[in-house]
Every structure is written in structure tokens, then in C-alpha cells.
Design a protein around this nucleic acid. Structure first.
Lengths: 147, 147
DNA sequence: TTTCTTGCAAAAGCTTTGCACACCG
DNA sequence: CGGTGTGCAAAGCTTTTGCAAGAAA
């Protein structure tokens, strides 16, 4: 698990390699992004960033998130809610999600069995896996009781 | 595996139960939809339907697809291509997809191991699964050679 | 007739882009 | 300075909706 400082260094390195600049806005946006543990929407990130600089615009947040995704520090997620969410990536490790249809809660999980099955499927189809998406939709512990 | 006739009957039954009408447009659109084996976009379905009635509009196709999804005869899929695809559902059976990042080909597969792992995960999180989404992104047999 | 459906166009939402100005190095 | 980055507003896309006219029951 990397801390925020490590991530900032990685991002700066990424920018340098691409001859991109480290601007005040990019720094604010990435710091606010990395403060967040899990998933954040563009709008939420904009609102947080605007607390530190009210003039930051939507476009800059979108553009910065693109860079964070390209650098591997963020993952783009879409849980069929109409808007994308961005996730603080931990060393590019793939993981799966449980998504509650009632309260919207998202929980991560990892499963060796699933990863093993994926590899075997890929092998039998002569398919090279680059990434995957695995989401279980249903009702979480608390919402199950009510529903 | 149901044939087209069965599906039309199921759809008509669905409409009747909801006191909805069987219009000329709905009939055309659903017939064209069921002619298709796998995934089709709204635009493709509109174009096919317009061959039989040039006046059919986008809105009607969207509205009819909503009904097909509600009736359980179609599934809505989103492979991160910016537009949704609709899939001819076979008895509501859940299945998984291999999506080629180069040529866009989509291949279905089923895996008992994956389904078993999903159940066990759900149990341990006290989560009730309603549906799931599982897509492996990468390169198919032919595109793997070139890439 | 009465109610549902359609087609058109406009509206919605989210995301991207063009452009003039500002800023980094 | 030269080239990037930013903010704003406008444009792009897909999907949804309002409404008057048309069709089904």
C-alpha cells in the first residue's frame, strides 16, 4: 500500500516523462483525489477541489482524471449509474465489486478461485486478458432485511 | 432455446398483462430484434426496422427495447463503447463475456467454477445476488498474433 | 370513443473540445 | 519567450421526454 506522498511522486514522474507540467490545479485535484479511499465522481472531486480553489472548472477535473488513469494511479469504473466513478488504484491490482441495488454501497473483494477460473477460460479460448470487470449486483446485508 | 414464434408470444403476453398495445411498429422492431443472434445497438435495430417502415423513429426503438428488457426477453449490455447494446436473452440465463479490445468481437462463455465462487463470496458477505456482470477484456485469438 | 402509441424536436446528462488568456519552465 | 494548461462556453453523443397527431381496442 502506497501512501499519498508516494503517489504524488509517481504522478509527477509520469508528467515529467510525458513532458507535461505540474500545475497548481493538477496538484490540488490529485491531492484531493488521493485523500479519498475508494470511489469518487467527477462532480464530487470538483467540489472538493473548489474548496481550495473556487475557479477550478469541470474540464480540468476531467482532463486530470484522464491523466491519473493513464498513469495507472486511478481506475475508471461504471456501475450503471449514468456517471463514471474513479477509483484510487492500489498497484494496479484487479479486484471485484459487490454493488447494492438499494443503497448503492460498493464493496470490494478478491477471489483466487475466480482469477484461476478466468485464466483457464482465457487459455481455452486462446484469449489474452488485459483487464476485467466483475460486479455482483444485489442486496447488501442491511438492505436484504428490508427487501 | 425458444424460437422466434415463442418469443413473439411471450412478448404479446407481456403487453397484454400490462394493458399495452401491440402496434405495427412494436411488431416490426421486436421481429427484427429477434432475428439477431447476439448483440445489437439501437442504431442498427433502427436501420433494420426502417427497411420495413421508413418512418420509424429513434424514440420508438428506445421505448420498445425498454419493454423487451422489462419482459425479460432482452438484456442491456454496456461494454464501455459509449453506447448500450441489447442482447437476445435465452431464458434469462446469466453468462459472461470475452471482449476483444482490438476488433470489438464479443464471445460468450459460462463457467461453473465462476458461478460457484460467486455464490460462496455472496454467502460470506451476507449479500443476495440479483444479477452480475463479468467481462474479460483483452485480445482474441486472431488479434493476439498481430499485437 | 377512449386510451395508448408514435414521430418529431427539444431537452437532459455527461463528457469533450475550441479558443483566448494565463502560467510553467 | 515558447509551449502547456486553464476556464468558459459551446458542441457532441446517447438517451429521454413533451406534445399534437395517429392508431388500437
Amino acid at each position: 500500500m502506497q501512501n499519498v506522498q508516494d503517489k504524488l511522486l509517481i504522478f509527477e514522474d509520469f508528467l515529467k516523462k510525458r513532458q507535461l507540467r505540474r500545475s497548481r490545479q493538477r496538484t490540488i485535484i490529485m491531492e484531493e483525489f488521493f485523500k479519498n479511499d475508494h470511489h469518487i465522481s467527477v462532480e464530487q472531486l470538483l467540489l472538493r477541489s473548489r474548496k481550495r480553489d473556487a475557479r477550478i472548472g469541470f474540464a480540468t477535473v476531467y482532463r486530470t482524471l484522464k491523466l491519473l488513469v493513464a498513469s495507472g494511479l486511478a481506475h475508471e469504473r461504471d456501475f450503471n449509474t449514468g456517471r463514471k466513478l474513479y477509483e484510487n488504484a492500489e498497484l494496479g491490482e484487479n479486484h471485484d465489486h459487490l454493488v447494492c441495488l438499494k443503497c448503492g454501497a460498493v464493496k470490494e473483494f478478491r477471489s483466487h478461485d475466480i482469477n484461476a477460473a478466468q485464466s483457464s477460460i482465457a487459455k481455452s479460448h486462446d484469449f489474452k486478458i488485459v483487464s476485467y470487470r466483475h460486479e455482483l449486483y444485489g442486496f447488501c446485508k442491511s438492505c436484504k432485511k428490508i427487501n
